[in-house]
Design a protein around this nucleic acid. Structure first.
Length: 422
RNA sequence: GGGGAGAUACUCAAGCGGUCAACGAGGGCAGACUGUAAAUCUGCUGGCUACGCCUUCGUAGGUUCGAAUCCUGCUCUCCCCA
């Protein structure tokens, strides 16, 4: 199956420029996606773009991942209702380094002519002076054209700086540069990037007299209209120190039936037949959640590792299985600790005991952010100690310790915290 | 440069001298139901040494017994004219 068809059945194409498919059919083609260095880790939103590059390489083409050292200094107005804050250079460089390391995990950088490549647009912008830029690049684009972009139009009312207004030209020049110097024919990206991408193909047409192509992916949303990739704590990151493999696994496992059917096509490499059979199986026995498990297994393995997955499953079974306080107590210490590796942990000392549950969860540990919150939770029957519901009267003493060392605190059904006596 | 409008909690948005920790909506969190799903119903959504107290309505002052509400300076944003 060719690249474009593969993306099509997976529901990963939002828009595609005429002629793109023919280009991919004609020859081994390089295509690139830009990643914005706004944080020091990629999150699962960028995972969609990464998967596109993976498919691209599998189809025999050359993936180029661009990290935006230069564009990151400007700030993309697309989809933003407010002017962005600029990052300082140090943060930016740190972010770039981290992101690059993550990207390298997903692609093959040593497989002959379609080896992946990571480029940084700062490399070609650092020597490019402002005057040169407005003469060589700006001259080809009319303000009228730039103003017609949605990303600009929607900001005309509320205002936008010249910096952000110029963003599309900067990104457009990236495409031009890659086209000119690396024969990169296609730019891929999220649907919000369409305007920026087209500026690039226009620049290539006007300045370079050539042709280039584009494919964009739809914005992923949850079935209920909510934002994809957010949890109570915020973004789901690919960096395991920011989102533990256990939490990562849980994120996918918790997706709704509706969502999981879409996600499995986008985030796994399973074939159409495999996916259909998993969905059929799931519909026959939805409570087994075969679908969510298949999804969570594969994504966790790709982003982390088989070992991380194993521990995440083990932890999940213990935390969400039918286990009781007694089961917890019967675990040996090693298993116990490794199971809870991904669960937020707090350390206490022996004299932190013998106090009320509220003090214990707020002051001795930071399970809850304030006493008010702790009381609210307790009142709504949301707190468990070692899998047993407790109320505001509960006193914590050393008899609550498991293996004389641990206490398991639970907020609601899904949020666990491990307290360790040190 | 001239004129006008505005800034309220996570977001939108009421309030226009006391009864305001601030209506409402969205979002979020929790409870029940379930399949660690969806839908639905319910509760909560500034902090505390908690029938009371403290800190919040762009910012700094002022008027007043009393201010988110009135006055003044400042900052920022938007609109119109040049």
């Amino acid at each position: 199956m060719n690249f474009v068809e593969e993306l099509k059945w997976r529901g990963m194409i939002h828009d595609i420029m005429p002629g793109t498919q023919e280009q991919f059919a004609k020859e081994m083609t390089s295509a690139y996606i830009g990643f914005d260095p706004t944080a020091d880790s990629l999150h699962i939103g960028s995972l969609v773009q990464i998967m596109i590059l993976v498919h691209l390489q599998k189809a025999g083409h050359k993936p180029v991942a661009l990290v935006g050292g230069a564009t990151g200094m400007v700030g993309d107005p697309s989809g933003k209702s407010k002017e962005r804050n600029l990052l300082d250079e140090e943060t930016l460089n740190h972010n770039l380094k981290c992101m690059q390391a993550q990207l390298e995990k997903f692609l093959d950088f040593d497989c002959g002519e379609n080896s992946a490549e990571v480029v940084n647009n700062f490399d070609w912008f650092k020597e490019f002076s402002f005057l040169d830029f407005i003469r060589d690049v700006g001259k080809h684009m009319s303000v009228n054209y730039m103003m017609a972009k949605d990303s600009v139009k929607s900001r005309l009312e509320t205002g936008m700086s010249f910096t952000e207004f110029s963003y599309q030209l900067v990104q457009g020049y990236d495409f031009y540069w890659l086209w000119k110097n690396k024969k990169c024919m296609v730019q891929l990206g999220g649907s919000d990037q369409w305007g920026n991408i087209v500026t690039g193909t226009e620049l290539i047409r006007r300045k370079g007299g050539g042709q280039a192509f584009a494919v964009t992916t739809p914005l992923i949303k949850k079935a209920d209209g909510g934002k994809f990739g957010k949890t109570e704590e915020g973004n789901v990151w690919l960096d395991k120190t920011k989102t533990s493999p256990y939490k990562f696994y849980q994120f996918w496992l918790n997706s709704s039936d509706e969502d999981a059917k879409n996600y499995i096509k986008i985030f796994t490499l399973k074939s159409q037949e495999e996916i259909n059979s998993i969905i059929t199986e799931h519909e026959q026995a939805p409570h087994l959640r075969v679908l969510q498990k298949a999804l969570a297994d594969e994504v966790t393995t790709r982003v982390h590792s088989a070992e991380d997955l194993e521990m995440a499953i083990k932890a999940s079974n213990i935390l969400f299985g039918k286990s009781t306080a007694d089961d917890l107590k019967s675990l040996d210490e090693d298993t116990f600790l490794s199971v809870f590796d991904g669960v937020p942990q707090f350390e206490v000392s022996a004299n932190d005991f013998n106090c009320g549950i509220v003090d214990f969860t707020v002051e001795k540990t930071q399970v809850f952010g304030s006493k008010g919150e702790a009381r609210r939770m307790l009142k709504s029957n949301a707190v468990s100690i070692n899998k047993e519901k407790v109320n505001e009267e509960k006193q914590i003493s050393s008899t609550d310790l498991i293996s004389n060392k641990y206490i398991l605190v639970q907020k609601g059904k899904k949020n666990y915290f491990l307290i360790i006596l040190k």
